[in-house]
């Protein structure tokens, strides 16, 4: 067991975890972040995405002990008026919504790198996230809308 501190959405959580504990389980069970979800367990669907600093990570494949002291952002940590969150909501970019927090965080990472992403850049950045409801067209619109809101031409 190791004692680690995760700074989750700005709040430090000090917790004891085993060597093999996954970040996903620690975030859900100890920090109460239920927007972080297991969809596949193998990093293939993106439902468990979190941002460590500004970098996306599959929390289902990440050992919690490695993130001692890390600044972790989950979707519930984002304000309702956040550019990306509001763009997704306004564009109807959620059906069941189970995968959407992952898309939202990937979008934040994308926009940090490419404030005005091209269509191909959107595809490239989001292709590792699966939305089984098939909300991709709306997600695409939402990403462009968020970019527009964040840095109007």
């Amino acid at each position: 067991m190791n004692e680690i501190t995760l700074i989750v959405n700005g709040t430090p959580h000090r917790t004891r975890v085993s060597d093999s504990a996954l970040l996903l389980d620690v975030l859900r069970e100890q920090a109460g972040c239920t927007s972080v979800r297991e969809g596949c367990g193998v990093g293939a669907c993106g439902a468990c995405t979190v941002l460590v600093g500004e970098t996306s990570v599959s929390s289902c494949l990440a050992l919690a002990t490695r993130y001692d002291g890390a600044n972790i952002t989950t979707a519930e940590g984002l304000d309702e008026n956040d550019d990306v969150v509001s763009a997704f909501a306004d564009c109807g970019a959620a059906q069941c919504g189970y995968c959407i927090p992952g898309f939202v965080l990937m979008t934040r990472e994308l926009l940090a790198e490419h404030p005005r992403p091209t269509s191909e850049q959107i595809t490239e950045h989001l292709e590792g996230n699966i939305c089984r409801c098939g909300t991709y067209p709306e997600i695409r619109t939402a990403v462009s809308t968020a970019a527009e809101r964040r840095s109007p031409r």
Binding site: G43, G46, T49, T55, S56, V57, S58, L61, A62, M106, E109, E124, H125, E127, G128, N129
Partner: peptide, 9 residues
Amino acid sequence: VANPRVRNT
């Protein structure tokens, strides 16, 4: 490689 999230790790 895979996707950006996996590439991050």
